[in-house]
Each structure stands twice: as C-alpha cells, then as structure tokens.
C-alpha cells in the first residue's frame, strides 16, 4: 500500500518498491482472470461480460492507487475532483450512447 508515512528517509513521495511490485502482481492477476474466463467460458455470456468489466475497473483502480499515487498530494486534491468530473462525463457519453442505441434495433 502507499506507505509513504514510514518511508520518510529517501522515498520522497512516490511510493516504494513494495507498492509497485504489489500493483504489478495485482495487474497481472486481473488480466489473467478475464483471459481465462473468455477462453474457457465458465459462466453465461452476460455474467462473463460483467465479470471482465469489473476486472478492468479494478485494474484501473490498482493503477490509480499503486502507480499514479492518487492518494498523495496536497490537500484540496484538485486532481481527484477533476478525475471524478471527467469520469462522470465519460460515463454519461458511453452510457447515453448505449442506452439510445438499445432502442434503435
């Protein structure tokens, strides 16, 4: 995890080797699981869709926390607020498009 508190000596702000290695391993696991699920289907199609989307979102979170250090930085965290606004816009565009097209068949 982001153990910057007890690493004050030289790891200035951006995490430690441990946090990068954990992030890397988690990313690999979160890539292999969807691959296995798609290549040997265990669940129904819809369940697989949902599972691999969740894996992708989890991997996004892993990159944000372990690699991009979203939790660090000065206190009004403008970057996090901007990101939330951006994600809201992205979800509206994608969700809205899919929703509209669902009534177009």
């Amino acid at each position: 995890m982001a153990n910057h508190g007890n690493h004050s000596s030289h790891a200035e702000s951006h995490g430690s080797l441990k946090s990068y290695v954990i992030g890397f391993i988690l990313s690999i696991v979160l890539t292999v699981i969807p691959l296995v699920l798609v290549m040997n289907p265990l669940f129904s199609k819809t369940a697989t869709y949902i599972t691999i989307m969740i894996m992708a979102i989890l991997q996004f979170v892993v990159q944000l926390f372990f690699f991009m250090h979203i939790r660090e930085g000065e206190k009004p965290r403008w970057n996090v607020q901007t990101l939330i606004l951006g994600l809201f816009i992205v979800l509206t565009i994608i969700g809205g498009s899919i929703w509209i097209m669902a009534f177009n068949v």
């Binding site: 970057n79 901007t82 951006g86 992205v90 899919i98 097209m101």
Partner: peptide, 24 residues
Amino acid sequence: VLGFWIFLVTDCILFGTLFATYAV
C-alpha cells in the same frame, strides 16, 4: 503536474467518445 492531470482527464473524455462510437 496538476495541469497535466487535467490534460489526462480531457484525454479520458476523448477516449470516452471513441469508446461510445465503437459501442454504437
């Protein structure tokens, strides 16, 4: 660096529109 974050978020929106196009 904060300015760069804001750029990344706008880039996120760019890819979002392309993903929406792909979905359509």
